[in-house]
Design a protein around this nucleic acid. Structure first.
Lengths: 141, 141
DNA sequence: GGTGAAAGCAAATTGCT
DNA sequence: AGCAATTTGCTTTCACC
Protein backbone atom coordinates (compact mmCIF):
# COMPACT_ATOMS: atom_id res chain seq x y z
CA UNK A 1 0.00 0.00 0.00
CA UNK A 2 2.27 2.74 1.28
CA UNK A 3 5.51 3.30 -0.59
CA UNK A 4 8.82 4.95 0.23
CA UNK A 5 7.51 8.43 -0.55
CA UNK A 6 4.64 7.86 1.86
CA UNK A 7 7.09 6.82 4.57
CA UNK A 8 9.14 9.95 3.92
CA UNK A 9 6.01 12.03 4.42
CA UNK A 10 5.27 10.13 7.63
CA UNK A 11 8.79 10.74 8.90
CA UNK A 12 8.37 14.46 8.30
CA UNK A 13 4.95 14.58 9.96
CA UNK A 14 6.33 12.63 12.94
CA UNK A 15 8.68 15.52 13.63
CA UNK A 16 6.11 18.26 12.99
CA UNK A 17 2.58 17.35 12.06
CA UNK A 18 1.59 20.99 11.59
CA UNK A 19 3.80 21.51 8.53
CA UNK A 20 2.01 22.62 5.38
CA UNK A 21 1.73 20.34 2.37
CA UNK A 22 3.76 22.95 0.52
CA UNK A 23 6.60 22.68 3.03
CA UNK A 24 6.53 18.88 3.02
CA UNK A 25 6.54 18.96 -0.77
CA UNK A 26 9.66 21.13 -0.81
CA UNK A 27 11.51 18.62 1.33
CA UNK A 28 10.70 15.65 -0.88
CA UNK A 29 10.44 17.44 -4.24
CA UNK A 30 6.74 16.86 -4.77
CA UNK A 31 3.91 19.26 -5.51
CA UNK A 32 1.61 20.32 -2.64
CA UNK A 33 -1.36 18.64 -4.29
CA UNK A 34 0.45 15.33 -4.57
CA UNK A 35 1.51 15.50 -0.95
CA UNK A 36 -2.06 16.22 0.05
CA UNK A 37 -3.38 13.32 -2.01
CA UNK A 38 -0.92 10.90 -0.43
CA UNK A 39 -1.66 12.14 3.08
CA UNK A 40 -5.39 11.87 2.47
CA UNK A 41 -5.02 8.30 1.25
CA UNK A 42 -3.02 7.39 4.34
CA UNK A 43 -5.69 8.95 6.53
CA UNK A 44 -8.47 7.13 4.67
CA UNK A 45 -6.68 3.80 4.88
CA UNK A 46 -6.24 4.26 8.64
CA UNK A 47 -2.44 4.20 8.49
CA UNK A 48 -2.41 7.78 9.80
CA UNK A 49 -4.87 7.72 12.65
CA UNK A 50 -4.63 11.37 13.59
CA UNK A 51 -2.44 14.25 14.65
CA UNK A 52 -1.56 15.19 18.18
CA UNK A 53 0.90 17.18 20.26
CA UNK A 54 3.79 16.54 22.59
CA UNK A 55 3.41 18.21 25.96
CA UNK A 56 5.91 18.83 28.72
CA UNK A 57 4.25 17.01 31.62
CA UNK A 58 6.30 18.92 34.20
CA UNK A 59 5.07 22.23 32.82
CA UNK A 60 1.56 20.77 32.82
CA UNK A 61 1.95 20.53 36.60
CA UNK A 62 2.70 16.80 36.64
CA UNK A 63 6.00 16.30 38.43
CA UNK A 64 5.66 12.55 38.58
CA UNK A 65 5.39 10.09 35.73
CA UNK A 66 5.02 6.43 36.42
CA UNK A 67 3.53 3.22 35.19
CA UNK A 68 1.65 0.68 37.20
CA UNK A 69 1.26 -2.95 36.29
CA UNK A 70 -1.88 -4.50 37.72
CA UNK A 71 -2.50 -8.13 38.54
CA UNK A 72 -6.26 -8.13 38.28
CA UNK A 73 -8.39 -9.90 40.90
CA UNK A 74 -10.58 -12.67 39.55
CA UNK A 75 -13.78 -11.27 38.02
CA UNK A 76 -12.64 -7.65 38.27
CA UNK A 77 -11.28 -7.14 34.76
CA UNK A 78 -14.32 -5.52 33.18
CA UNK A 79 -14.82 -3.10 36.06
CA UNK A 80 -11.11 -2.23 36.00
CA UNK A 81 -11.17 -1.46 32.28
CA UNK A 82 -14.15 0.87 32.61
CA UNK A 83 -12.64 2.61 35.62
CA UNK A 84 -9.20 3.09 34.07
CA UNK A 85 -10.67 4.71 30.97
CA UNK A 86 -12.29 7.36 33.15
CA UNK A 87 -9.17 8.53 35.00
CA UNK A 88 -7.64 11.71 33.55
CA UNK A 89 -4.27 10.74 35.03
CA UNK A 90 -4.02 7.78 32.65
CA UNK A 91 -1.99 8.60 29.54
CA UNK A 92 -2.19 5.15 28.04
CA UNK A 93 -3.13 1.65 29.12
CA UNK A 94 -2.74 -1.84 27.65
CA UNK A 95 -3.68 -5.38 28.37
CA UNK A 96 -0.43 -7.31 28.54
CA UNK A 97 1.00 -10.80 28.86
CA UNK A 98 2.99 -11.90 31.89
CA UNK A 99 2.54 -11.85 35.64
CA UNK A 100 0.40 -8.74 35.43
CA UNK A 101 -2.64 -8.15 33.23
CA UNK A 102 -2.69 -4.39 32.75
CA UNK A 103 -0.11 -1.71 32.12
CA UNK A 104 -1.20 1.80 33.08
CA UNK A 105 0.90 4.87 32.29
CA UNK A 106 0.14 7.91 34.43
CA UNK A 107 1.12 11.54 34.95
CA UNK A 108 0.64 12.87 38.47
CA UNK A 109 1.10 16.06 40.42
CA UNK A 110 3.08 14.63 43.35
CA UNK A 111 3.58 11.67 45.64
CA UNK A 112 0.32 12.25 47.48
CA UNK A 113 -1.46 12.09 44.15
CA UNK A 114 0.30 8.81 43.38
CA UNK A 115 -0.78 7.40 46.73
CA UNK A 116 -4.39 8.37 46.09
CA UNK A 117 -4.23 6.88 42.62
CA UNK A 118 -2.87 3.57 43.88
CA UNK A 119 -5.58 3.52 46.56
CA UNK A 120 -8.18 3.53 43.81
CA UNK A 121 -6.49 0.72 41.89
CA UNK A 122 -6.23 -1.69 44.81
CA UNK A 123 -9.95 -2.36 44.45
CA UNK A 124 -9.29 -4.09 41.16
CA UNK A 125 -5.95 -5.77 41.52
CA UNK A 126 -2.48 -5.87 42.96
CA UNK A 127 -0.37 -2.99 41.66
CA UNK A 128 3.36 -2.83 41.03
CA UNK A 129 4.56 0.73 40.54
CA UNK A 130 7.58 1.97 38.60
CA UNK A 131 8.49 5.64 38.61
CA UNK A 132 9.85 7.10 35.39
CA UNK A 133 13.17 8.79 36.11
CA UNK A 134 14.01 10.12 32.66
CA UNK A 135 13.30 9.62 29.02
CA UNK A 136 15.88 8.08 26.69
CA UNK A 137 15.89 9.61 23.24
CA UNK A 138 12.77 10.92 21.59
CA UNK A 139 9.31 9.50 21.20
CA UNK A 140 9.04 7.63 17.95
CA UNK A 141 5.44 6.49 17.45
CA UNK B 1 1.33 30.50 33.36
CA UNK B 2 -1.20 28.66 31.22
CA UNK B 3 -4.85 29.36 31.98
CA UNK B 4 -8.10 27.54 31.27
CA UNK B 5 -8.33 28.89 27.73
CA UNK B 6 -4.84 27.55 27.02
CA UNK B 7 -5.86 24.14 28.32
CA UNK B 8 -8.93 24.21 26.09
CA UNK B 9 -6.67 24.88 23.12
CA UNK B 10 -4.40 22.03 24.19
CA UNK B 11 -7.37 19.69 24.47
CA UNK B 12 -8.41 20.58 20.93
CA UNK B 13 -4.88 20.15 19.56
CA UNK B 14 -4.58 16.79 21.35
CA UNK B 15 -7.44 15.51 19.23
CA UNK B 16 -6.24 17.10 15.98
CA UNK B 17 -3.04 19.10 15.90
CA UNK B 18 -3.51 20.05 12.25
CA UNK B 19 -6.56 22.24 12.84
CA UNK B 20 -6.25 25.85 11.74
CA UNK B 21 -6.20 28.66 14.30
CA UNK B 22 -9.48 29.82 12.78
CA UNK B 23 -11.14 26.47 13.47
CA UNK B 24 -9.81 26.31 17.02
CA UNK B 25 -11.01 29.86 17.55
CA UNK B 26 -14.53 28.96 16.47
CA UNK B 27 -14.70 26.21 19.05
CA UNK B 28 -13.65 28.45 21.93
CA UNK B 29 -15.05 31.78 20.65
CA UNK B 30 -11.71 33.46 20.13
CA UNK B 31 -10.22 35.19 17.09
CA UNK B 32 -7.61 33.35 15.01
CA UNK B 33 -4.92 35.85 15.96
CA UNK B 34 -5.54 35.35 19.66
CA UNK B 35 -5.43 31.60 19.29
CA UNK B 36 -2.19 31.89 17.38
CA UNK B 37 -0.67 34.14 20.06
CA UNK B 38 -1.57 31.71 22.81
CA UNK B 39 -0.27 28.70 20.90
CA UNK B 40 2.98 30.52 20.14
CA UNK B 41 3.46 31.39 23.82
CA UNK B 42 2.90 27.77 24.80
CA UNK B 43 5.44 26.68 22.19
CA UNK B 44 7.96 29.28 23.37
CA UNK B 45 7.51 28.32 27.03
CA UNK B 46 8.12 24.68 26.15
CA UNK B 47 4.69 23.53 27.36
CA UNK B 48 3.90 22.46 23.80
CA UNK B 49 6.97 20.58 22.70
CA UNK B 50 5.84 19.76 19.20
CA UNK B 51 3.26 18.15 16.98
CA UNK B 52 3.22 14.57 15.84
CA UNK B 53 0.98 11.88 14.41
CA UNK B 54 -0.69 8.71 15.52
CA UNK B 55 0.08 5.71 13.34
CA UNK B 56 -1.53 2.31 13.10
CA UNK B 57 1.42 0.05 13.89
CA UNK B 58 -0.29 -2.98 12.33
CA UNK B 59 -0.70 -1.13 9.03
CA UNK B 60 2.93 -0.04 9.36
CA UNK B 61 3.79 -3.74 9.17
CA UNK B 62 4.39 -4.19 12.89
CA UNK B 63 2.14 -6.97 14.10
CA UNK B 64 3.75 -7.17 17.50
CA UNK B 65 3.95 -4.49 20.15
CA UNK B 66 5.71 -5.15 23.39
CA UNK B 67 7.75 -3.63 26.14
CA UNK B 68 10.87 -5.00 27.67
CA UNK B 69 12.16 -4.16 31.12
CA UNK B 70 15.91 -4.52 31.40
CA UNK B 71 17.91 -5.23 34.52
CA UNK B 72 21.19 -3.74 33.42
CA UNK B 73 24.47 -5.55 34.08
CA UNK B 74 26.95 -3.66 36.22
CA UNK B 75 28.86 -1.10 34.15
CA UNK B 76 26.73 -1.59 31.04
CA UNK B 77 24.28 1.29 31.50
CA UNK B 78 26.00 3.85 29.29
CA UNK B 79 26.49 1.40 26.45
CA UNK B 80 22.89 0.26 26.74
CA UNK B 81 21.55 3.82 26.53
CA UNK B 82 23.54 4.59 23.40
CA UNK B 83 22.52 1.31 21.79
CA UNK B 84 18.82 1.65 22.58
CA UNK B 85 18.65 5.12 21.08
CA UNK B 86 19.89 3.70 17.79
CA UNK B 87 17.27 0.97 17.35
CA UNK B 88 14.41 1.95 15.02
CA UNK B 89 12.16 -0.61 16.73
CA UNK B 90 12.21 1.45 19.95
CA UNK B 91 9.18 3.73 20.22
CA UNK B 92 10.06 5.09 23.65
CA UNK B 93 12.38 4.24 26.51
CA UNK B 94 12.76 5.34 30.12
CA UNK B 95 15.00 4.85 33.07
CA UNK B 96 12.77 3.54 35.83
CA UNK B 97 12.76 2.62 39.51
CA UNK B 98 12.26 -0.93 40.73
CA UNK B 99 13.79 -4.30 39.98
CA UNK B 100 14.58 -3.27 36.45
CA UNK B 101 16.45 -0.17 35.29
CA UNK B 102 15.11 0.43 31.81
CA UNK B 103 11.71 0.28 30.15
CA UNK B 104 11.80 -0.14 26.37
CA UNK B 105 8.67 0.04 24.21
CA UNK B 106 8.98 -1.60 20.81
CA UNK B 107 7.04 -2.27 17.62
CA UNK B 108 8.08 -5.38 15.71
CA UNK B 109 7.20 -7.26 12.55
CA UNK B 110 6.79 -10.73 14.08
CA UNK B 111 8.01 -13.16 16.70
CA UNK B 112 11.28 -13.78 14.89
CA UNK B 113 11.93 -10.08 14.96
CA UNK B 114 11.22 -10.04 18.71
CA UNK B 115 13.66 -12.90 19.24
CA UNK B 116 16.36 -11.06 17.32
CA UNK B 117 15.69 -7.91 19.27
CA UNK B 118 15.96 -9.67 22.61
CA UNK B 119 19.20 -11.31 21.47
CA UNK B 120 20.69 -7.85 21.06
CA UNK B 121 19.56 -6.72 24.50
CA UNK B 122 20.99 -9.64 26.42
CA UNK B 123 24.44 -8.12 25.98
CA UNK B 124 23.44 -5.30 28.31
CA UNK B 125 21.12 -6.82 30.85
CA UNK B 126 18.47 -9.30 31.77
CA UNK B 127 15.23 -8.68 29.89
CA UNK B 128 11.67 -9.31 30.96
CA UNK B 129 9.26 -9.11 28.03
CA UNK B 130 5.57 -8.25 28.05
CA UNK B 131 3.53 -8.40 24.87
CA UNK B 132 0.86 -5.77 24.36
CA UNK B 133 -2.45 -7.50 23.66
CA UNK B 134 -4.68 -4.47 23.16
CA UNK B 135 -4.99 -0.82 23.96
CA UNK B 136 -7.47 0.45 26.52
CA UNK B 137 -9.04 3.76 25.58
CA UNK B 138 -7.16 6.40 23.65
CA UNK B 139 -3.73 7.88 24.00
CA UNK B 140 -3.88 10.96 26.15
CA UNK B 141 -0.44 12.64 26.26
C1' DG C 1 0.28 9.30 -9.70
C1' DG C 2 1.64 13.68 -10.84
C1' DT C 3 0.92 18.71 -12.15
C1' DG C 4 -0.52 23.73 -12.43
C1' DA C 5 -4.14 27.25 -12.31
C1' DA C 6 -7.67 29.66 -9.82
C1' DA C 7 -10.74 30.53 -6.01
C1' DG C 8 -11.14 30.48 -1.30
C1' DC C 9 -8.77 30.35 3.20
C1' DA C 10 -5.18 30.61 6.60
C1' DA C 11 -0.89 32.54 8.48
C1' DA C 12 1.65 36.18 10.00
C1' DT C 13 2.50 41.03 10.82
C1' DT C 14 0.96 45.49 12.35
C1' DG C 15 -1.38 48.85 14.80
C1' DC C 16 -5.20 49.89 17.76
C1' DT C 17 -7.78 49.16 22.13
C1' DA D 1 -4.67 39.93 26.00
C1' DG D 2 -7.54 40.48 22.23
C1' DC D 3 -9.04 42.11 17.64
C1' DA D 4 -9.34 43.67 12.58
C1' DA D 5 -7.03 44.61 8.45
C1' DT D 6 -3.59 43.53 5.28
C1' DT D 7 -0.30 40.95 2.50
C1' DT D 8 1.60 36.84 1.61
C1' DG D 9 1.38 32.06 1.26
C1' DC D 10 -1.32 27.62 1.50
C1' DT D 11 -5.23 24.53 0.54
C1' DT D 12 -8.38 22.51 -2.33
C1' DT D 13 -10.44 21.26 -6.48
C1' DC D 14 -10.22 20.04 -11.14
C1' DA D 15 -8.96 19.48 -15.85
C1' DC D 16 -5.05 17.58 -18.09
C1' DC D 17 -1.15 14.50 -18.65
Amino acid sequence: MADDIDFKIIDILKINSRLSYAEIGKQIFLSPSSVRERVKKMEDSGLIQGYTLRLDQRLMGNNLEAFIMLKIFSGKLKAALVEIESYPEVKEAFRITGQHNLYIRIALKDQLHLQQFIDKLVNFGEPTTHLILSRIGKENF
